[in-house]
Write a protein that binds this DNA or RNA. Sequence first.
DNA 1: ACGACGTTTCGCCGCAGGGCGAAGCGTTCC
DNA 2: GGAACGCTTCGCCCTGCGGCGAAACGTCGT
Lengths: 224, 224
Amino acid sequence: MNGDADLSYPARLMGEPARAAMLVALLDGGARPASELAAIAGVRPPTASAHLAQLVEGGLLVDRRLGRHRYFALADASVADAVEAVQRIAPRQRVTSLRQSSTALRLAELRSCYDHLAGRVALVIADALVEEGSVAPLVAGRVGEITGSGPVAQRLGLRPEPASGRRPAVRGCLDWTERRPHVAGALGAEIRRVFLDRGWATALPHDRSLKLTDAGRDVLAGLG
Amino acid sequence: MNGDADLSYPARLMGEPARAAMLVALLDGGARPASELAAIAGVRPPTASAHLAQLVEGGLLVDRRLGRHRYFALADASVADAVEAVQRIAPRQRVTSLRQSSTALRLAELRSCYDHLAGRVALVIADALVEEGSVAPLVAGRVGEITGSGPVAQRLGLRPEPASGRRPAVRGCLDWTERRPHVAGALGAEIRRVFLDRGWATALPHDRSLKLTDAGRDVLAGLG
DNA sequence: ACGACGTTTCGCCGCAGGGCGAAGCGTTCC
DNA sequence: GGAACGCTTCGCCCTGCGGCGAAACGTCGT
């Protein structure tokens, strides 16, 4: 139509909920096998396989075969930029019913954002870690840095483990209920694991929201 | 799926060729009536109306009713950012036949990019204008500035008209055959008009390519 | 008042493409 | 060698949605 590159082609690839979920899951730069991406997207393996083939064909993902697994990752930073730029113009989820409204409230409080925590609670944690200097100030969509291990980091039982493999230790992830970055990356995943393992939060069925337990509330109050 | 904003919703809106063409046409920040966008997208009015309604509903476009016309423009800069970020990961059009190949060659040389010129010829002009200081260095996707009126600008008969209305006088537009910015905005549109009016180039039917005339070739040679 | 015009609504068609289960293929483990 | 496993291919269903013509609606010019 226009001598320019065809906008609609990559946009169409991003415009399908299952594929979009896969892309968002890979935003941290990590590589994940097809089965894991299928689970994240909520589709069965054959469907996921078809979607992943399209994303590779379209140049949004690259794949690496390792034994009987096949790992997928974003092709490069420009793909992450595009995904984030589009995410930035997505409307916050609309509230159309009472049930959705209460779900929205729970999600805004605390939820899983792929493998780390998001929501108001996640921001309290992120702010505390940055304030005490354990983590460099976060920028959404950028790789961050562990800069120490202050009292909050120790209270949470976070070991300053070095970045293992390709995955960055810390990454800023824009919180779309609050419009500020929270902790993603390996550290973000560890925080979520700690909260679940120690019974500070429990996962609720049916959606990605989590419920803070009394113990969790105490821990959080102690971070102030 | 994810407490985050739904990436797939705006992406789906961008992922349909007719809607994508409309968004690209509005990238310069201008407002255009529905009928014009219908022509650009190559669809009939009812279809365009449906697409535009979706883009407004999705928050990508805003509209202003003026008499019996309805003008549409990108909702804000973040939408332009998203469109450009996605365009950046689109594959350059593939060549699958000889005919396509010769068309591709003509498009790479000189074409209309909505209302201004693109291709190698457009870059020669842009470079000359920047070099002599008539235009501030161009950045793709950003509003530029007219900084003077050197010999090249005068040879082209460009009046340094002030930005009229909402449309920026100059805008960098990434050239996807050459990966460098050329002149868009009001000045870009005027350059195209001058080339056509003075017989320096003629529009070819069937696609967006233009053919440089001998007179046009002379003018260009004199810009060196 | 009337006709021209830009836009929208309606009703209908046609198809691209997402979804799945079953089955096939290659790799790994014992 | 055989079983388990991860992924892909195949065949099928079925919904979503883009496309258009006809007609309605509102605005403008005369």
